[in-house]
Amino acid sequence: MTDPQAIAELTRELAVSGLCAVAALFAIAGTIGVFRFPDAYTRLQASSLTGTTATFSVLAASLVASPSIAIAARVVVIVIFFLVSNPTTTHIIARYAWKSGLDPWTDSARRRGRGEDRP
């Protein structure tokens, strides 16, 4: 294992696996959060863990794994479109909930004994 090319290849594979592991961690945590959190807004926050962080980690992994500059450039373009489009969809859902008059859950509502009792 003294060949520099083999070492570079190994480092790259380790980075790709690490990023995929991070993506899996955040995807699972986001899914748990969607079931665990009390109302639409907080569930949206949990799902943004899956939708943003996990997706971005997979894209970063594919950027590291891409075999040529041309493909890496395309991944960069996908990342830029993702940076613009992903917050927009989350914002639309939150805005619709807000416009339709959905009251956000607060921990003080739980203390007063009304609203949801889940954490």
Partner: peptide, 19 residues
């Protein structure tokens, strides 16, 4: 984003939020 993700991860696992 990563810094905020780890904070959100902590509150998902602990279940304690103050939205």
């Amino acid at each position: 984003m990563y810094a905020a993700s780890f904070r959100t991860l902590a509150s998902v696992l602990s279940g304690r939020v103050s939205p």
